[in-house]
């Protein structure tokens, strides 16, 4: 595929945006900023998916990662205390061993990536019987699909198959997964909330909490509540 025209412009804009926001994500000191940068990265990658003709993957990326996972991330970040990380300034990129190891691993990763892409291109260029057959099958499937009212939009067969198997064949596991998420949320709120939040909720008397508190930090925290 050769990029041309506006496609090329958008490709370069979004890929550079993805790279830079990715970098900014790991360099940001504030965890909330990191999460926001990660969202920008994911949006850029979703745009790249659209350019590649994978509209469904792009949609799923926006809905699942940006809509669901990242919001949950932000919840967790705001729930747990991340002040300590913010205060520890100057801890990044200061140990030479760390930097060397990172550079080496990054190099290895890059070599592996180039090798994998080379192999993939080689495989693509060697047409074999099986892939031809599959291609024929796919066109047949595409033709069997319903065409929308305007006649110009077709959902891909894979999308339709995914939807069917998720909501028809696997409807029960789909529902059970929501129960799993509920348990996980209840559990994390239960474990992650601070003593302050616990005392603020009406169920616990700060005097009672004082008896179970052991460390001085927690005690100070509690006193700030009761005041």
């Amino acid at each position: 595929m050769v990029l041309s025209g506006w496609e090329a412009v958008f490709f370069w804009v979004f890929s550079i945006a993805a790279l830079f926001t990715g970098l900014l994500m790991i360099m940001a000191r504030n965890a909330v900023h990191s999460a926001l940068f990660l969202i920008s990265t994911l949006v850029s990658v979703a745009a790249l998916f659209v350019l590649a003709g994978a509209e469904f993957v792009a949609g799923a990326q926006v809905l699942v990662y940006i809509g669901g996972v990242m919001v949950l991330f932000l919840f967790v970040i705001m729930l747990v205390n991340v002040g300590a990380e913010e205060r520890g300034r100057g801890q990044l990129f200061n140990s030479s061993a760390q930097v060397t190891a990172t550079a080496l691993l990054g190099l290895l990763l890059a070599i592996g990536l180039v090798y994998a892409i080379n192999q993939g291109v080689k495989g693509l260029n060697e047409p074999n019987r099986r892939s031809d057959e599959m291609a024929g099958q796919r066109t047949a499937e595409q033709q069997a699909l319903p065409v929308s009212a305007t006649g110009d939009m077709k959902i891909t067969a894979d999308t339709q198959r995914l939807g069917s198997s998720l909501y028809r064949y696997a409807s029960l596991p789909f529902e059970i997964a929501s129960l799993l998420l509920l348990v996980a949320i209840v559990g994390s709120v239960m474990l992650a909330r601070t003593l302050k939040q616990e005392a603020a909720a009406d169920d616990v008397d700060p005097e009672v909490l004082k008896e179970v508190v052991t460390t001085p930090e927690e005690r100070a925290e509690l006193e700030s509540v009761s005041r």
């Binding site: 029960l172 596991p173 059970i176 997964a177 129960l179 799993l180 348990v183 996980a184 209840v186 559990g187 239960m190 474990l191 179970v212 508190v213 052991t214 927690e218």
Partner: peptide, 22 residues
Amino acid sequence: IIFLGLEILSIATYVMAGFRRT
């Protein structure tokens, strides 16, 4: 189903094991 059931059970049990937070 077995995997989902196992995960529901496990996550709930992890939290219950750490219930006495102090």
